[in-house]
Design a protein around this nucleic acid. Structure first.
Lengths: 215, 215, 215, 215
DNA sequence: AATGAATGAGGTTTCATTCAT
DNA sequence: TATGAATGAAACCTCATTCAT
């Protein structure tokens, strides 16, 4: 038993040390990614130099390459954080809102929050997605598709319980997703109205989707 | 013939020669812009070299600079063509469709056509818009805002004639525009469903917008 | 006929122009290769920077890359020149020297000349050959083996005509080649004696090979 | 036992400790040098990184610098081992072979053994010798010249005792050395024949040197 | 008007070396 | 004594742009 506890002590020490190390590594990775995301959002991936990033992250250029294989790898790092954050958001998700329209409003707001708190990272990544097949593939499969899937399930559920009409879930979910995407684009393009009138906008959207615009 | 003389009226004496010149110039500009747009769409603006463009356009690199001030100017050239094409599309546009839902369907299809026949140019320009303030400004003011405005007018008109509910037109038009934008993004990201199920998709979207998803 | 001559005139003009162009290209390639070879011989391939080479060749660094794909390609360029020069030397080669020993002496001198007039290029290439499989392969197959082959043929001929003993030509030719290689190495290492006593050295070598050192 | 006390005699009081230390030091130095030599032979000095070496030697990069001043110092370390090994080989050397031709054969074989068992180190060092004056100087003076000197003495001895002709020993010894060098080069360049036909090759070489190729 | 060779600033990346732990 | 993260100089290479022809 004494031996055992002795071993444990060592183990604990070791693991503590390696823990500290990996925590510092993760921290520094984040420090770099945040600097990069901000710059990418401001000037774009290609107009941002590794020197810029190093400076903004307060490390040397060499250090960048101790944490990331190359410049493009930074984009993948940003994407991973986006994926993590999305999953995080989903956990503390939309509870079980009984009313379907409440649910839609909640979802729009949740998306809005996600977009706002990950704005730089999303913008960083988006412009390259349009242009880099690898990144596009990753983005589609790890961020968009999961979103679509979750939506489909919710829709199916609501349809079964008779809360909403029986329209093709696959198309309906895409419709909703493209609303989010478009909303984000309008935001990035700096259309002033959505930002200033968010509350009303959500109401209009939710109302329209639920009740339609026809009399 | 009268048309012809009318057109001629605006021209100076040495018109024929300068005409031929400018026509050739315009043609070569187009030749270059098309090559550029295709490459930009494939590889992105920054990964496309002026050499690539010259090669694809079958001119020398030097010639590029006889027609455009610099590489970025090509993007502005592409944007101008997009604006022209949009205006063109709008003229022969949505006639006067009595039924509001028919109108919406027609509009969705018109957008779809526009997107499809200007795909490369749109994709070329979009990823840089996210990253280049000048271009973004131009895009917003010359392509997005006019679209929003036109939509607002249509909506106001339909509201007045009692065909649709009285929701805030500014927000409703943004809602519709963000649907188009999102649709385009899904397309660029290669989501397969919208492409293969376009007809049904349009129906779902139009039905939802008009009648809502609630029972 | 007039058409023909007219065409010819054009052709001549064209070919003259393209000739001038390609001649200038070849000239500039040589200019660069000579600068590179000298520096490589002095400091070695890796300690020579592309900037060094550009400076020595009196062109910009960018221009280097208009003529060679990358730095290593310069080594291949040097090797090609070595191969050319060897073939050149072989044409005006060892005539038909009746006496076998005269022939050996002539050959040793011919090698010496080759080594001396291609010294920088040989030294440039040699140290990388020891370390770069591609280059080694090329060197062996394009420079060493042809030399061995030629030697073998000569030896076979002399053996048949009864001038020398019937020893395995393949081994004997390798023996002679390794004498040349070793000689070159001693030269590069700056052993003073061979350089200062070349005439006598050749005599000793030829005498030994022919008559042996035994009484 | 007497030997043991003899060895101990030279040591100070705290000898045992410093002994262990220096023995461990020497061992680790060797461990590093062997790893380095292997990598240098494979990829060349410049393409081998200190990280590579550290990894292969199973130490950290920092530790490298506790044993060697810098990367180039590794080459000097390798050279020193080569010198040591050569002297070692020479001590238990060519006995006193009465017959001169037997002696030559034995010498060729001894060189062959040396080359084979020090192959990586020789190849490591050779390509840099061609390019690094310091190293070249050291190589020439500590490895080549001693070899030449030893040879000269042997030759002089054999000449005096009337076993071989009176040719200039300085040139003759260089001739023999360049045969060894060339042989080594052919080996490094991967000429297949010498390796597969070594026994016969030695016989041809020895026979030629002794009796010549002339009838 | 068209060409394309030349340019050189500037980008990404590598890697020997240092030093705090 | 051993470590390995951090460094930053410097290398190779690209490419938008110019300009003599």
């Amino acid at each position: 038993m004494s031996t055992h506890s002795f071993l444990n002590k060592e183990k604990t020490l070791d693991s503590e040390e390696s823990d500290r190390k990996s925590r510092r590594t993760i921290q520094k990775k984040n420090q770099i990614l945040e600097a990069a995301a901000q710059l990418f959002a401001e000037k774009g991936f290609h107009r941002t130099t590794t020197k810029d990033i190093a400076l903004a992250a307060d490390v040397s250029e060499g250090t960048l390459y101790n944490y990331f294989d190359n410049k493009e790898d930074l984009l993948f790092g940003i994407m991973e954080k986006l994926v993590d954050n999305q999953q995080l958001g989903r956990q503390l998700s939309l509870a079980e809102l009984d009313d379907a329209q409440d649910f839609l409003v909640a979802m729009l707001n949740e998306r809005r929050d996600y977009v706002q708190s990950n704005h730089d990272m999303l913008q960083s990544v988006l412009s390259e997605i349009l242009v880099d097949p690898d990144l596009r593939h990753k983005y589609y499969h790890e961020l968009v598709l999961p979103g679509i899937d979750t939506l489909e399930q919710h829709l199916t559920h609501r349809q079964r319980s008779g809360q909403i009409k029986k329209l093709d879930e696959r198309l309906l979910s895409r419709f909703l997703v493209s609303i989010f995407l478009g909303m984000f684009l309008l935001d990035v393009i700096h259309d002033p109205l959505i930002e200033t009138h968010w509350e009303q906008y959500v109401r209009v959207v939710a109302d329209t989707i639920f009740n339609g615009i026809a009399f």
